[in-house]
């Protein structure tokens, strides 16, 4: 069991090296960025105390379904596996818990702590072989895969949105709306294997145009019901969800560009920071998008042309 955790630490160190920074610096930057974003979030919205447990549990549900958990099931005895999952969940949740305690949100921290261990005890069979129907079958790629991986999260966000409308909490509704957009953007985080770029008989612009059109269509399918709900809910503020939608679409474009700006590697730290900064200060997109686009062209040229 100790070896498993030391291996995980080695994997983390290797990951930092792959994205081009030393592990010590990487961990230091991660802690700094985490504290910075947390501070910002708790200053900007009262909902932060709810966003934190939500993010933590989403991460935990996601890792509990990853492929290597299957390998763990094969290697370890049931009891040991349970302990591993508890410790692992505890490590992942610790920064969020500590920050909730720092913000004196003791009750939420306690509930989260219990939930973290509960997630370790239950076995979510999301990786079932049963095909999950998706509204994106005609455009099979990032969106269909992303949807199948996140359909529980999307369902949960829609449930929160529905509840927000029911209890007259417009801010919570807007939060869910924005979070669904973030989920759509997350579909484009992982780079696909080179073969799945190579097969396209487009030039670079044609390829990117296709990707953007697909992203617009698929995200709209997911977003429009939420948008209609919010506009009907508070028609005086209709411009707000529409505005978020338009900005969301621009972010989606920059996310696609960011993905291929690092291709075939994952987005590296400087690009990630640049992207995070542009979420915080959207006018930065005017610089970021052309920059990413230029890198996209360089990276895709050898594969497509």
């Amino acid at each position: 069991m100790e070896y498993y955790f030391s291996l995980q630490f080695i994997r983390l160190k290797r990951w930092f090296k792959e994205i081009g920074i030393s592990p010590i610096l990487g961990i230091a930057i991660s802690i700094f960025v985490f504290i910075f974003i947390s501070k910002l979030l708790f200053i900007k919205t009262e909902l932060a105390k709810w966003i934190y447990p939500f993010i933590t549990l989403s991460i935990l549900v996601n890792i509990s379904n990853s492929q290597y958990k299957r390998l763990l099931k094969i290697i370890y005895h049931k009891e040991k596996l349970r302990i591993i999952r508890m410790v692992e969940n505890g490590i992942v949740a610790l920064p969020f818990l500590l920050y909730l305690l720092y913000e004196k949100e003791y009750l939420i921290a306690l509930i989260l702590w219990i939930a973290v261990f509960f997630v370790a005890l239950i076995s979510l069979n999301i990786n079932s072989t049963k095909t999950i129907p998706s509204p994106f079958s005609k455009r099979p790629f990032e969106n269909i895969i992303g949807f199948r991986k996140s359909f529980i999260l999307i369902g949960l966000l829609y449930f929160i949105l529905f509840k927000a409308i029911q209890v007259d909490n417009y801010n919570l509704g807007m939060f869910s709306f924005g979070a669904i957009y973030l989920v759509c953007m997350s579909f484009y985080l992982k780079p696909e294997q080179k073969y799945f770029v190579w097969i396209f008989n487009d030039n670079i612009n044609g390829f990117l145009k296709r990707k953007i059109i697909d992203a617009f269509i698929c995200s709209s399918i997911l977003m429009i019901p939420a948008l209609i709900g919010l506009v009907i809910f508070d028609h005086k503020n209709f411009f707000l969800p529409i505005g978020v939608s338009l900005i969301g679409l621009i972010f989606l474009v920059s996310m696609i560009f960011a993905k291929y700006a690092s291709y075939p590697n994952e987005m590296n730290v400087p690009q990630g920071i640049l992207f995070a900064l542009s979420i915080w200060f959207p006018p930065m997109l005017l610089i970021v998008i052309p920059l990413y686009y230029k890198r996209c062209k360089q990276n895709l040229a050898s594969i497509l042309e």
Binding site: S137, P140, F141, I144, I145, R148, K149, F196, I199
Partner: peptide, 12 residues
């Protein structure tokens, strides 16, 4: 790709 059906792979 993971979570893609045979039909969807052919379509892609």
């Amino acid at each position: 790709l993971s979570r893609i059906t045979g039909w969807e792979y052919l379509k892609l």
